[in-house]
Amino acid sequence: MATAKLTFSDVALTVNVPSGTRIIEISEKVGAGITYGCREGECGTCLTRIESGAENLTEPSVLEQRVLKENMAARDERLACQCQVLGGEIKVRPA
């Protein structure tokens, strides 16, 4: 099974996760400061800064693109409840 290294900078922890994992599935479990609201890509609460490895995440869906735009998200920000890790190394922290 393909895996990825997902690092949460604010709690200094790297988790080896299977490909396809959504960031929020892990962030809650490890106590990272990435928080959640609706979990459905609507509220924008889980906005997350991708410090490195953005290319190792799935492309934003139409829904995520719309919510990112309406939340005036920066180019390096994604929704933790929407994007999935594909492989390689990704480093994130709360936006």
Partner: peptide
């Protein structure tokens, strides 16, 4: 250590969560 940014980085497996 976490407050001062000096915590040792850790690595764990998904299965241990």
């Amino acid at each position: 250590a976490h407050l001062t940014g000096t915590a040792e980085p850790r690595e764990i497996d998904f299965a241990s969560l």
